[in-house]
Simulated assay, not measured.
Amino acid sequence: MFFFDIDGTIKPYNRNISISTRNTIKRLKELGNIIFLATGRRYNEIKFLMKELDIENAVCAGGATVVINNNIEKEEFFAKDKLKNILYECKKYNIIIVSVSNEKCYTTYKGIKLLPYIFLMKILSKTRFFKIGSVNGIALNSYMNIKVVDEKTFLEKSTQKLIFYNYRHIKKVQSIKEYTIYNNVFCSSVEFEFKEKGIEYIRNKYNVHLDNIVVFGDGLNDISMFEYAKNTIAMGNACEEIKQRASFITKKSNKDGIEYACKYFNWI
């Protein structure tokens, strides 16, 4: 079983997926291997990519969602009590909080201060500096069309990611200390980072030995699955934290790194 991160791994930042990567995935499948995407993206954000690459399985939302044969088998969300604490602290420090559900975004904020951020998002989404949202423009729209709801409705939403605007005091929010805070040009965000739990669920379901698991990744949200697996392939463009945990470092994602590693180990 092969688990591939998307951004910076299968898909180089600001570039299309290479022909060599597409052919490598196709060849791996032809040889009887099972392919999974392993990403921080929500399922609705990667459906188009799964169809494009003819991949039917995925560990999404940083491990919170497991998809097998295009069916959701397992999902986890932020607990209501935890969301309530985060929302309370954000109000205390005047931080605009937006929850990312399966297909939509929600906020309890009713003012106009959110509008400049949305406008900036629209502008930056057309540049190479944009790294929030989705790997395609369709799901990206959900990050720009944010619905205002009351607190009760906000807490009842199936939330797998939180985005913070006007986040100058974000470090004061104690209820998100357990998460990695990702800072962007105009916002911060937290999301689940336990891809290894999704892999463990799949291993147990199919009774697969850990030696038969291969993971590819490049970023901080891949650390947990790199510490979990034995066969860990870091892209040449990976962060140092990933390279230090890798059993093998391949070429960069935009230099046919996936094909190189798979040929090196005679997987194709």
Rank of each mutant, 00 (worst) to 15 (best):
E191D: 07
R245T: 03
L31M: 08
L220M: 08
N94M: 10
E241Q: 11
R42L: 06
N102P: 01
F216K: 03
I233E: 05
E193L: 13
A246M: 09
A261Y: 00
K172R: 15
T21S: 13
V67R: 12
T24H: 08
S101H: 09
I258R: 01
K147N: 11
R245P: 00
T180Q: 08
V98S: 00
N145D: 14
L28Q: 06
F216C: 00
I249W: 00
K104D: 14
T153N: 15
S253V: 00
E75Q: 13
N70W: 10
K197Q: 14
I181K: 13
Q244P: 03
R42Q: 13
V98L: 02
L53G: 11
I55T: 05
D218N: 15
S134G: 12
T24K: 04
V98Q: 03
E75G: 11
F248G: 01
F3Q: 09
K126F: 05
K47T: 04
R168I: 09
S188F: 00
M1G: 08
T107E: 10
F265A: 03
K255A: 12
C90E: 11
F192V: 06
I138H: 11
K104E: 15
I213V: 15
R245I: 02
M121G: 14
M235Y: 07
I25L: 15
D256H: 13
F130R: 01
I35R: 09
L124P: 02
E156Y: 08
I86W: 01
L210E: 10
M144P: 01
D150S: 13
Y13K: 07
I95V: 15
N212L: 05
M144Y: 14
V208H: 00
D222F: 00
Y13A: 05
S142C: 13
C105Q: 08
I181D: 02
L83E: 01
H209W: 04
R168H: 11
F154S: 10
N71T: 14
Y143H: 07
I242T: 06
K110P: 09
N207M: 06
F48I: 04
K195R: 06
F186P: 00
V215Q: 03
S175M: 06
F77A: 05
S224C: 10
K104I: 03
E259I: 06
